Amino acid sequence: MIDIRRAAPLDARDMAALLSDIVATGGSTAMTDPVSQTDMLAWMEGDPRSIWHIAEDAVGDILGFQFIEPHRDHGATVGQIGTFAKAGKSGLGIGSKLFEATKEAARVAGYRWINAEIRADNAGGLIFYQSRGFEDWGRIKGYVMANGQVVDKVLKRYDL
Results as ranks from 00 to 15, higher is better:
residue 97 K to D: 12
residue 99 F to V: 02
residue 123 A to Q: 12
residue 13 R to S: 07
residue 65 F to P: 05
residue 135 E to C: 09
residue 70 P to D: 04
residue 43 W to K: 15
residue 78 V to N: 02
residue 150 V to R: 11
residue 78 V to Q: 01
residue 81 I to F: 02
residue 152 D to L: 03
residue 27 G to F: 02
residue 95 G to M: 02
residue 102 T to P: 03
residue 142 G to M: 14
residue 58 A to Y: 11
residue 31 M to T: 10
residue 131 S to K: 05
residue 69 E to N: 04
residue 69 E to K: 10
residue 10 L to Q: 09
residue 58 A to N: 14
residue 13 R to H: 07
residue 85 A to G: 00
residue 3 D to S: 03
residue 128 F to R: 01
residue 148 G to K: 01
residue 116 A to C: 02
residue 137 W to M: 13
residue 85 A to R: 04
residue 144 V to H: 02
residue 159 D to A: 09
residue 86 K to C: 01
residue 46 G to C: 02
residue 85 A to Q: 07
residue 47 D to H: 13
residue 130 Q to W: 05
residue 69 E to L: 01
residue 21 D to T: 02
residue 6 R to D: 06
residue 105 A to V: 11
residue 160 L to V: 13
residue 150 V to E: 14
residue 62 I to V: 14
residue 66 Q to M: 15
residue 102 T to W: 03
residue 90 S to V: 14
residue 89 K to F: 08
residue 144 V to D: 02
residue 6 R to M: 05
residue 50 S to C: 03
residue 89 K to S: 05
residue 63 L to N: 07
residue 121 D to N: 12
residue 124 G to Q: 12
residue 141 K to D: 12
residue 2 I to S: 02
residue 118 I to F: 04
residue 21 D to V: 01
residue 136 D to E: 13
residue 80 Q to K: 10
residue 29 T to G: 03
residue 88 G to V: 14
residue 62 I to T: 04
residue 131 S to L: 00
residue 15 M to L: 13
residue 121 D to G: 00
residue 104 E to T: 14
residue 85 A to M: 11
residue 146 A to Q: 15
residue 47 D to V: 07
residue 84 F to A: 13
residue 82 G to S: 12
residue 126 L to S: 11
residue 120 A to L: 06
residue 110 G to S: 08
residue 80 Q to W: 08
residue 105 A to L: 10
residue 26 G to H: 06
residue 130 Q to D: 11
residue 34 P to S: 12
residue 22 I to H: 01
residue 24 A to S: 10
residue 113 W to M: 08
residue 29 T to S: 05
residue 121 D to V: 10
residue 148 G to L: 01
residue 159 D to W: 14
residue 144 V to P: 01
residue 38 T to C: 05
residue 58 A to M: 13
residue 26 G to K: 13
residue 89 K to P: 00
residue 97 K to G: 00
residue 145 M to C: 15
residue 42 A to G: 08
residue 129 Y to M: 02
residue 71 H to G: 01
residue 77 T to C: 05
residue 35 V to S: 07
residue 35 V to G: 03
residue 37 Q to V: 03
residue 77 T to G: 00
residue 138 G to A: 13
residue 66 Q to F: 08
residue 109 A to S: 05
residue 113 W to K: 10
